[in-house]
């Protein structure tokens, strides 16, 4: 198993946000996390690169294993961990710098200074993110000059440039128009060959199109976790059924 969560409980101060969640994810698969707003799916996603550490009152019980290693162990260096777990956010958030510098930034903070290595990686990452053809002649231009969809693919390229093995995506297409959104979905499908992907989404069609497995969260609990096709066509729990058919949430 690439990723494992074992009996995870999570708290913001006195509020319990996640309740006894266990989940195993295989290598090179796409797992979709769905559920109504506030169900804890984004919080759950942010456990895997320890982004929740930035919130002072956060507290975790249980274990999160990646490649069999407990990432909340005291000996783990958080910055090193985040280099192996890439993340793409809901709103495209490029740095106010050039396109090139955006992709190179991760390597720069990694201590890579060799120019030819950086240039090569930037090109490779942009190609992987299906953005190279559109930006190869304007790498020095500001990233803010790109459209929303291009910005989001730039953010994906930026995440890929540090060579992670896992990619976490927090509603990566929710701020984009339908065509840009489809491009991101196609990209997710291609990236699956090299990365293990977890994606939070509000869009049920998107979950069913892109993912191999789907987890349905409700009020901090993992209600159902199954093959995407099974979960959408033949859910075992009534709450899942009600949610995917649009009866609530």
């Amino acid at each position: 198993m690439k990723i494992e969560a074992k009996n995870v409980n999570f708290f913001y101060g006195p509020d319990q946000v996640l309740r006894d969640i266990s989940m195993s994810i295989k290598k090179n698969t796409v797992t979709a996390l769905i559920g109504p707003s506030g169900c804890g799916k984004s919080t759950f996603l942010r456990l895997f690169n320890r982004m929740n550490d930035l919130i002072e009152t956060a507290k975790l019980e249980g274990e999160i294993l990646i490649d069999g290693v407990d990432i909340y162990n005291k000996n783990i260096n958080v910055n090193e961990l985040r280099k192996t777990i890439g993340m793409v956010f809901q709103k495209p958030n490029p740095f106010p710098k050039s396109i090139f510098e955006n992709v190179a930034y991760g390597m720069k903070v990694n201590g890579i200074t060799d120019k030819s290595i950086i240039e090569e990686s930037v090109e490779e990452s942009l190609k992987q993110a299906a953005l190279w053809e559109e930006v190869k002649d304007k790498l020095k231009k500001s990233a803010f000059a790109l459209s929303g969809g291009q910005q989001q693919r730039l953010c994906i390229a930026r995440a890929l440039a540090v060579k992670p093995s896992v990619l976490l995506m927090d509603e990566p297409a929710s701020a984009l128009d339908p065509i840009s959104s489809i491009k991101i979905e196609e990209l997710i499908y291609q990236l699956k060959a090299s990365y293990t992907i977890m994606i939070v989404t509000h869009n049920m069609q998107q979950a069913s199109r892109t993912s191999d497995k789907t987890a349905f969260f409700y009020m901090g609990e993992l209600v159902e976790f199954d093959d995407t096709r099974t979960l959408f066509t033949n859910p075992k729990k009534e709450r899942t059924q009600n949610y995917i058919t649009g009866r609530f949430g």
Binding site: L81, R82, K83, M87, F95, P96, G106, V109
Partner: peptide, 27 residues
């Protein structure tokens, strides 16, 4: 400087100082 910029930097493995020096201060 929006929090999302800091978040993006942290997510790439940057330390707090690297984030402040490379992103927050220039911006």
């Amino acid at each position: 400087v929006p929090y999302t910029i800091r978040e993006a930097s942290y997510a790439l493995g940057a330390t707090k100082w690297q984030t402040i020096w490379n992103q927050v201060l220039p911006a």
